[in-house]
């Protein structure tokens, strides 16, 4: 199975021999309910993987396994050759519900500081790093605002900044832009892609928006439900430089969108 995925997924960037992340025969059941079965998946360092599938197919659960928030009942998830035993500071998670994931009593700067405090970054070094990260997500002028004084898009930017403060090698995102309006979503997609390319972080992006999955990803993993399993792995053959208008009109984009759409129709039936 992994070999097959590798074959259909030629990556645009040079890839090291060993994958950074490996799911080997991973399954998860709660009592009699089987959520995920036989997940074999390899992700290379620096790769941007999008995950789609009909609702209830276990997309979020797959992400939680990789985050170490959930333990598999079968198989193993490993990172850099070592089995994952729980949440690792090296793996950052952007949750969909940004309002619950931020500390409302801390300012934007304070929320970013939390990740630095957890890493034990000495106090004198924090301020400069915080300013840099807030600048990177476009919140440079809003360091002293509390989350309640920010729009949804700004709050999600802030959560991304806090995740980057962990200096992670893997960035997990669970429908991060699902609750935002279309304009904000497009803007954040471009910013996210830019950040991922600049930092070289490996991205694992769960979404229900097929176009978003293609636009952002180097590869799109499609999950089928009952129980959740990997049905397809579609390589994204678009040039790395993407644009909200021209990329979305690219024949390769449209062809892949059609393939994903057909898959979802079939899987939901």
């Amino acid at each position: 199975m992994p070999a097959q995925i590798l074959k259909v997924a030629p990556r645009p960037q040079p890839v090291t021999a060993a994958p950074l992340i490996r799911f080997a025969g991973v399954g998860l059941s709660f009592g009699r309910t089987e959520i995920l079965r036989g997940i074999d998946l390899e992700i290379a360092a620096g790769e941007f993987v999008s995950v789609i599938g009909p609702s209830g197919c276990g997309k979020t659960t797959l992400l939680r396994l990789l985050a170490g928030l959930q333990k598999p009942s079968a198989g193993q998830v490993s990172m850099a050759g070592r089995p994952l035993r729980g949440p690792a500071p090296d793996i950052a998670v952007v949750f969909q519900d940004y309002a619950n994931a931020l500390l409302p009593w801390r300012t934007a700067a304070g929320n970013v500081a939390l990740a630095l405090e957890a890493r034990g970054v000495p106090r004198p070094e924090r301020a400069a790093r915080i300013a840099e990260l807030l600048q990177m997500v476009g919140l440079g002028a809003h360091a002293e605002r509390f989350p309640a004084q920010m729009s949804g898009g700004m709050q999600q930017r802030l959560q991304i900044a806090r995740c980057l403060a962990q200096d992670p090698s893997v960035l997990l995102m669970d429908e991060p832009f699902g609750a935002l309006d279309a304009m904000t979503r497009h803007k954040l997609q471009d910013e996210l892609r830019g950040i991922v390319r600049r930092t070289g972080v490996t991205a694992f992006f769960v979404t229900h928006d097929l176009e978003e999955a293609i636009y952002l990803g180097d590869r799109v993993i499609a999950l089928a439900p009952h129980p959740g399993r990997i049905a397809h792995s579609f390589p994204v053959t678009l040039p790395p430089q993407r644009d909200q208008l021209s990329t979305r009109e690219d024949p390769a984009f449209l062809a892949l969108r059609r393939a994903l759409f057909d898959f979802i129709q079939e899987a939901s039936a």
Partner: peptide, 18 residues
């Protein structure tokens, strides 16, 4: 407290006292 913040804390690697 919302369960989400406890997960954020685990993901960030905060100690129990922190």
């Amino acid at each position: 407290r919302p369960a989400r913040l406890a997960e954020v804390s685990r993901c960030l690697g905060l100690s129990r006292t922190a």
